[in-house]
């Protein structure tokens, strides 16, 4: 197993462990309350509500796992898109691994609905262009990036921070590098976990932070967008 897959597997196991531990703890102290999402309601039915456009998704140059450069718009149009930012060595239990686990659950649900699956894509875009090059992203993605899968999952990076930062800024995605006690950068990138649901016209229609990462609700949101009247050709 490649090193990145192993890291991801270990991290995911830790996340799941943390989730289970938190869920059974009951958290008598609010400070100890789990920061992971918990859904204690029935998700509103798809199509029974509207998701107003929040903003347009940005464009910018991204690099796929084959090292080819495209505009981000290539990955945020025509299909319903779930876009998130990550980095391959992130192990924050309520950060990238949680997003990964959520996206994996959604992918499985979508694969059980082939009619929907072909109209949806997942996009993971790296925070760290200096470490996460195309080869790293390919290794991290593994079989998930299979172009024959009905649910396309694109693992992207950028050539430089200069290419990346305008996209982060436009979407309001914060990120900072944690420093050690001597002021040197560490391997930890602090960021607020956000997943962006983007419609076929490239408009952001929902944003999920940790408290909102509820696969059932997200699935219904995707279906709600798919139920909207298709654009005129």
């Amino acid at each position: 197993m490649p090193i990145f897959r192993r890291v991801r597997t270990a991290a995911t196991a830790l996340v799941l462990g943390a989730l289970l531990a938190d869920g059974s703890q009951g958290a008598s102290n609010a400070e100890l309350a789990p920061s992971t999402p918990h859904q204690d309601f029935v998700a509103p039915a798809a199509g029974s509500y509207r998701l107003p456009p929040i903003q347009r998704s940005p464009n910018g140059r991204v690099v796929d796992i084959d090292g080819r450069t495209y505009g981000l718009a290539r990955y945020t149009r025509e299909r319903i898109t779930l876009l998130s930012f990550m980095y391959t060595y992130c192990v924050d239990p309520v950060g990238c691994p949680l997003a990964y686990a959520t996206l994996t659950q959604l992918r499985e649900r979508l694969l059980r609905r082939p009619d929907m699956a072909r109209q949806v894509r997942l996009v993971s875009l790296s925070f760290d262009p200096s470490h996460d090059d195309a080869a790293s992203m390919r290794m991290y993605a593994g079989a998930l990036a299979d172009p024959k899968s009905p649910v396309r999952w694109h693992f992207l990076t950028t050539r430089s921070v200069a290419d990346l930062k305008p996209m982060l800024d436009d979407l309001g995605q914060d990120v900072s590098v944690e420093l050690d006690t001597r002021g040197r950068p560490t391997r930890v990138l602090n960021h607020m976990l956000k997943l962006f649901l983007i419609d076929r016209d490239g408009r952001v229609r929902e944003i999920y932070t940790t408290a909102f990462l509820m696969p059932e609700v997200m699935f219904n949101d995707i279906e709600t967008l798919l139920l909207e009247t298709p654009r005129a050709p």
Binding site: A33, P34, V94
Partner: peptide, 21 residues
């Protein structure tokens, strides 16, 4: 070792985790 590293990194996050409130 990878798991241990992951544990160490998670522990090192300390107060920087996103929180519920």
């Amino acid at each position: 070792k990878v798991t241990a590293l992951a544990f160490a990194l998670i522990a090192s996050f300390g107060g920087t985790l996103p929180v519920q409130a």
